[in-house]
Design a protein around this nucleic acid. Structure first.
Length: 148
DNA sequence: AAGTGGGCCCAATTACATCA
DNA sequence: CTGATGTAATTGGGCCCACT
């Protein structure tokens, strides 16, 4: 493993990866929030997610093709993709690792990434109410910024 | 209804950095 | 030094939605 070559800081990646685990395609709002949280440009966040998805698909394809019993047709892009019909795009990809590190007891999702070893309170990940939950939580954090 | 512009995504590619 | 590998960023093409 390379210690991140010319890449983002471990903390930034940790946040992005934790988010990616729950949501591989964040909407513009979430992208902006992530950018704020990571001190990056929204464009960078967007590019990061794009590359991440690409890597994931590539790996899966490689695994399948290298697999002797892999008989999955290429699925030609939009062929099997409902795409923008869904407002929230049900994740077509299964998380490669980390099934559910989120603490269900916590009001705000908390992730522990062994990558960074840090505690990442990602509150906006509630896909259902990204907007409101995020606003509320961010406001709270911005004001108090302290967890009991 | 048709045409246009903006936004988003995917796949492929490029450019750079690091390690063996 | 070179080749392999990983990552960030760019490019090109396609699709969808809102607007005129």
């Amino acid at each position: 493993m390379r210690p991140s070559t010319r890449s983002l800081k471990p903390e930034q990646r940790a946040i992005l990866e934790a988010t990616f685990d729950l949501k591989t395609t964040p909407d513009s709002f979430l992208t902006r929030r992530l950018a704020e949280e990571c001190n990056l440009n929204p464009r960078q966040v967007q590019v990061w997610f794009q590359n991440r998805r690409q890597r994931l698909h590539k790996r899966k394809r490689t695994v399948r093709t290298s697999s002797p019993s892999a008989a999955e047709p290429p699925a030609k892009k939009a062929a099997a993709e409902p795409a923008r019909s869904e407002p929230e795009r049900s994740e077509p990809v299964e998380s490669e690792s980390v099934d559910s590190e989120a603490d269900p007891c916590s009001p705000a999702l908390t992730f522990y990434t062994d990558d960074f070893g840090a505690e990442l309170p990602l509150l906006w990940l509630d896909e259902l109410d990204v907007g409101t939950a995020c606003e509320a939580e961010l406001t709270r954090r911005g004001a108090g910024q302290s967890q009991p």
